[in-house]
Amino acid sequence: MNALDVENLNVHYGAVHAVQGVSFAVAEGELVAIVGSNGAGKSTIMWALSGVKERSGGAVQLFGSPLPSRPHDVVARGLALVPERRRLFSDLSVEENLVMGAYLRGDDEGTRQDRERCFQLFPVLKQRLSQRSGTLSGGEQQMLAISRALMSRPRLLLLDEPSLGLAPILVDALMDTILRIRSEGVTVLLVEQNAARALEIADRGYILDAGRFVKSGPGPELAEDPEIRRAYLGG
């Protein structure tokens, strides 16, 4: 069974046809990257897949059944989104952000284990538990945004531009973390403007341009493709 089957997805913002008939699949356990320039429609795909942005056409199957229409039902089916710019609950403490991540969980023991797992991935969060999340540094905010998503114990994790605004050394650590999360059995769909880094770690990649896929293939292969390097990877 695929984690995600997207068939001819269309999304409009008013008269603007932002996503124009995109089709792709993500197998369970896979790490798939969608890369493209600013405004190509990457984030729009993410919002549509999480039920926030209404689709104007196409069918989406999440773990073999149709995607629910409201975000909280989508989350209940095992999807979690780390949105662009992180969008933490900035007035809430680090701890409260994690509590919100686990909002739908009833198992206290499992929730506690997942918290420990997040602290293993990002030890700094443990020292910041009572701090207001809006006062964290950019890197720490990204760690918290990922942890908040992991606290729902998702089967499919959507990451939208996680490297945005991070120093290069933090981007390295981030890519390692994404691989580690995948190795623990979570399916990952990664959207990045930082195409080279995303394609290096992805099993498969898709190049999105003006709302359509223009190329797809194994991640590292796309990263080496001279034509793609010229057009999207800055040489």
Binding site: L88, L92, E96
Partner: peptide
């Protein structure tokens, strides 16, 4: 309380609150 924290989360960012599984 969990509901109380969810209310404050909603004040902060409604859309993300619904993406935590909260029925708005």
């Amino acid at each position: 309380t969990r509901t109380g924290i969810a209310i404050r989360a909603g004040v902060s960012d409604m859309t993300m609150c619904s993406l935590m599984g909260v029925d708005l």
